[in-house]
Simulated scan of single mutants.
Amino acid sequence: MVLMVLGGSAGCGGEGTGAPEAASSKGATQQETFPDPDVRLDAEGLRKALPELRSMPTGWRTGVVPTSARDVPQDKRCADGNSSDCYLMWSTAVVQYKAPGDTGSVYIQLSAYPDRRTAGAALKGRNKADAPGNRAVSMPTVGNESVAFAEPRAAHATPSLTMTVRVGTALAELIYQDEERQPDSAKILLSLARMQAKRLLDVEQGRTPKAMAD
Rank of each mutant, 00 (worst) to 15 (best):
S160N: 08
S68M: 05
F149R: 07
K76Q: 15
K76L: 14
R181W: 06
G143E: 00
A99F: 08
V65S: 00
V94S: 02
A112M: 04
V165F: 04
A150P: 07
A69F: 00
Q177W: 03
L88K: 07
Q109Y: 02
V95E: 02
Y97F: 14
T103C: 09
A119P: 12
L110K: 00
S84C: 06
V142W: 06
R135N: 08
P159T: 13
A157C: 05
A131E: 10
A157S: 15
G168I: 10
V72I: 15
E151L: 12
R117D: 11
D80V: 06
A79V: 14
N144M: 05
V147P: 01
T169Y: 03
I175A: 13
K124R: 14
P100K: 15
R166S: 08
P183L: 10
A93Y: 02
T118F: 00
S191F: 05
R116I: 12
D102H: 08
P114F: 00
Q177C: 09
V137A: 04
Q182Y: 05
S185G: 02
R117V: 09
S84V: 01
R181C: 08
S105W: 01
Q96T: 02
T164W: 01
E179I: 11
C78E: 03
D71H: 02
S91I: 08
T103W: 10
D80H: 05
L174G: 00
H156N: 12
D102L: 13
A154K: 14
P114N: 07
T62H: 12
T118S: 12
A121V: 13
D184N: 12
L110M: 14
V165M: 14
L88I: 06
R77P: 00
L174C: 05
A172W: 00
